[in-house]
Every structure is written in C-alpha cells, then in structure tokens.
Amino acid sequence: MEFKVPTMAEMMAAGEEPEILFWVGCAGSYDERAQKITRNICKILHHVGLKYAVLGTEESCTGDPAKRAGNEFLFQMQAMANIEVLNAYNIKKIVTGCPHCFNTIKNEYPGLGGTYEVIHHTQLIQDLINDGKLKAEGGESFKGKKITYHDPCYLGRANGVYEAPRKALEVLDADLVEMKRCKANGLCCGAGGAQMFKEPEKGKKDVNIERIEEALATKPQFIAAGCPFCMTMLNDGVKLKDKEQEVKVLDIAEITARANGL
C-alpha cells in the first residue's frame, strides 16, 4: 500500500478520533481474495480524505457464524468482548466490508450494549457519490460494460439495502443487467448460515452453481459482489464453469477503486 492504514490504538495515542471506524471482518483480514477488497476500501477512504481507522489486531470475529450455527454463547462472548473494545474507543460510526458483520453489529449488538451507526461499504460509496466526493473518473472505464450485481442476503433481504450497490454501478455508465432472481427475490450464493464452513448436504447441485448459471445467463463481463463470502462462492462457480477468461467477479469497492484509478 502506498499509504499507512491508521489503527485506533495509534489514533488514541495521538489524541485523535476518527470520523468512522472501518470494521474489516475475518474474511477481509485473512482471505487472500478478500484482502484485496479490504485494501480497496482503504484506498477509497484515503482518496476522499475521510478520517478513518481500523482496529487491526484488536478486531475479532463478530460472532456471526457462531450465532447462525446455533452457538449463542460463543456469539455473545465475542459480541461483548468486541463491544468493550468499541465502547472503550468511543466509536460512533462504523463501516463494514462484509454484510454479515454489518448485520450483526447493526442489529444484534445494540441489545448487548453496543449501539453505533453502522453502514456497509456500498452505502458509504453511495454517500460519497451523492456528496460529490467520489466520481468515476481517472481510471478504468466501465462505460457500456455488461455488469450484473448479486445481492448478498444479509445486505439485501436481511436489511433492505438494494439501491446503494446499484447506485455505485450506475455512475459507471455501465450496462447493468439484472438476474432473474434479484433484490428481494435474490438467490443466496450458498455461503450464509455458516454454510461457508461446512460441506453442503447431499443434493442435485451446489447452490453457488445454481447462482452462477443464472449470473452467466445474463452474459456479463463482470459480476459485482458486495460480500467476501459471496465472492468466494461466485469465483468458485466461475472457475468450475471455466469462464475465468470472459467473466470477472469484482467487489463494488474494487470496481469503484478501479474506475477512479486508485
């Protein structure tokens, strides 16, 4: 990276407070593919000059996979530990790189003592576009490129965020095509509910194959995602269908960063 990503500990030591905390999430921290998305979100934050910070090694799993797998104990242990850190830093606003972290912190932390304004990174991008701070210039042109957007369940159906990611794509002047099952009727990538961490039950096919077939049917050049787990599932699907050359799966943050030459 061409710049240093500031941590909360450093900010605190310097007696400063960020405008927004960037909650990276486990996938964004450890998964190689998702790390790229994380760095692109930082590039966007840096580019627009927003005062932000990350928790770095002080961040821990939100507890989402434990909760969806039925282990409420582990979830609440994680949640309370995280809330303690967030409250100690007096965090007010959080942007997440993952819809699962977004949903958990936004909806399930308040009941345990952690109330923050929480947005997903596609919402931040939408806000920045609306405020005129972010455009689509100076970088790769997506004009007329065929893009289809896959709604992550925990962003879309779970929290009703359908427009923000589409807004981020609209400014590209690209050719947006919707899959048959989109928005409230969007089909899951197959990773939610802790499925990411286990083998699927026996059946006729894997969920991500069903989804990628639908995505490929729109003949896209890019499949846009907003979730690191969807990213893994969609990428695997594209690979299995041997379409890696024709179709790229990119996160909204990556597309935005590319369009702005970041």
């Binding site: 921290s29 507890g63 996979p65 582990l74």
Partner: peptide
C-alpha cells in the same frame, strides 16, 4: 469453525497476531 472462533477470534485457523497483515499487501 466454532473452535477457531473461540480460540483465534476468526472462523479459520489463523493467528490473531496476523489479523492486520493485509495492510502490508
């Protein structure tokens, strides 16, 4: 996965000390 969350603070078997390594890429 649950064991990893409990011990490493992540659903995978990575060290919490490596959590910020992404910033070096």
């Amino acid at each position: 996965m649950l064991g990893n969350v409990e011990n490493n603070g992540a659903p995978w078997k990575y060290s919490p000390a490596d959590r910020f390594n992404w910033s070096e890429g």
